[in-house]
Every structure is written in structure tokens, then in C-alpha cells.
């Protein structure tokens, strides 16, 4: 649910990074934060445990410039991936405009990816949203590791509506901005269509 302010000529949209625990959601945000000019970003907030696991959310406000005279801001959030934080995940999806699913490419995380997408679908429907309808992109992260599932197999098991899909190595930045750009584009086009 975007917020359009005609008085300030601003538009604010919310993007949520979803996916299984330790899949690289926070690494995506961290890379974007590190690579964005000071004037275009706010403070990155991480509500994490002492062991650096996301407890509630990470938050990064990005100011991308103007489109048609409107300052365009994206608020990026991550959810905590661990299964038992489901109540928190549900809260963070409130008012979401677009979702990026960060899948872990490692063989042993196949089940966790499938379970997390199922969980995303359920939690979205609790907010009256359908994964089928919302702007959505898929990212296969950790492609640099040895024990990864082939891209074809991951696509077969995780892609369900031909959403834009990207290979990534979030810690090194590979694929990070491509994924963000794809979902931002879908969100702005969605506004254009007048949902």
C-alpha cells in the first residue's frame, strides 16, 4: 500500500525481503546500504539478536530520485527467517507493495525454501493479498558455494508465476541491485495501472 503525498510530491513504497533463515536477506540490504550514496539513503536499522540473527526486522530507507516530479522512496525491510518468528513476519508484511524472495541455493535448504514460500503465501493472504497478484521477484542466493542446486531445478521448484528471477551472491553484491530494480519496476507499474 503505497503512500502518495501530493503536498510534498512524494511517493513511499514498502518492499519486504522474505525467505528462510540465514538465506542472505540482511546481506542484500547491507550491500545496498554500502553501495548507495549518503544523500540517497537513511540509517540502516537492524533489530537483531546478539548473534546477529534478525529478531524483528532490518530497515533501510532509500531515496531513488524523482519520477514525473515525485520523489520516489522505497522502504526496504527484511523479515526474521527462522521458523518460530512467524508472528513477527506476519506483522512486517502489513502494507507491503512488493516482495523479494531470497532463496538459499544450498542442497540442504531445498525444503526450507519451499516451506518459506508457502509461509509467505499464507501470511500474505492473512493481509488480504495474493502472491499471485503482488509485485514479486525471486532471487537464488549463494551461487558461489559448492553444494548448490542447479538453477533449472530451483526454478522448477520455486518459480510459480514466471516472476523475474535472478542468481545472486549477496555478500559480494552480484544480482542484488538487479533484483531490487525488477521489483521496484513492478511496483511503479502497478501504481500506474491503478490497482
Amino acid at each position: 500500500m503505497a503512500f502518495i503525498n501530493y503536498a510534498n510530491r512524494e511517493i513511499n513504497c514498502k518492499i519486504v525481503y522474505y525467505g528462510p533463515g540465514l538465506g542472505g536477506k540482511t546481506s542484500n540490504l547491507q550491500y545496498i546500504y554500502d553501495r548507495t550514496a549518503e544523500k540517497s539513503k537513511g540509517k540502516m536499522i537492524s533489530l537483531a539478536t546478539e548473534a546477529d540473527r534478525t529478531l524483528f526486522f532490518d530497515f533501510l530507507p532509500l531515496d531513488l530520485g524523482t519520477v514525473r516530479g515525485f520523489t520516489t522512496r522505497f522502504h526496504l525491510y527484511t523479515v526474521p527467517g527462522q521458523v518460530f518468528y512467524d508472528a513477527s513476519r506476519k506483522l512486517i508484511l502489513k502494507g507491503v507493495d512488493g516482495v523479494i524472495f531470497v532463496a538459499d541455493s544450498q542442497v540442504e535448504r531445498v525444503e526450507a525454501n519451499v516451506e518459506s514460500i508457502r509461509n509467505l503465501d499464507e501470511n500474505l493472504s492473512d493481509h488480504g493479498l495474493l502472491l499471485q497478484d503482488i509485485p514479486y521477484a525471486l532471487q537464488f542466493n549463494k551461487r558461489d558455494l559448492d553444494n548448490v542446486v542447479s538453477v533449472e531445478d530451483m526454478y522448477r521448484s520455486l518459480n510459480f508465476k514466471r516472476e523475474p528471477t535472478f542468481e545472486a551472491i549477496a555478500t559480494k553484491g552480484y544480482g542484488v541491485f538487479d533484483t531490487l530494480r525488477a521489483v521496484a519496476k513492478l511496483i511503479l507499474k502497478d501504481l500506474n495501472r491503478g490497482r
Binding site: 501530493y6 519520477v67 514525473r68 515525485f70 519496476k185 511503479l188 507499474k189 500506474n192
Partner: peptide, 20 residues
């Protein structure tokens, strides 16, 4: 009259946001 400021938005407009 949903008054979308993005009614005329193009792919180029969006790409320009990420050009820097």
C-alpha cells in the same frame, strides 16, 4: 479519477532511477 502521478510512466523513467 484515481489520479495516479504515474499514469504515463515509462520503462525509461524507472531505469533512470537506478542509473546512478
Amino acid at each position: 479519477e484515481t489520479a495516479s502521478p504515474f499514469a504515463e510512466i515509462t520503462d525509461e523513467d524507472i531505469d533512470a532511477l537506478f542509473s546512478e
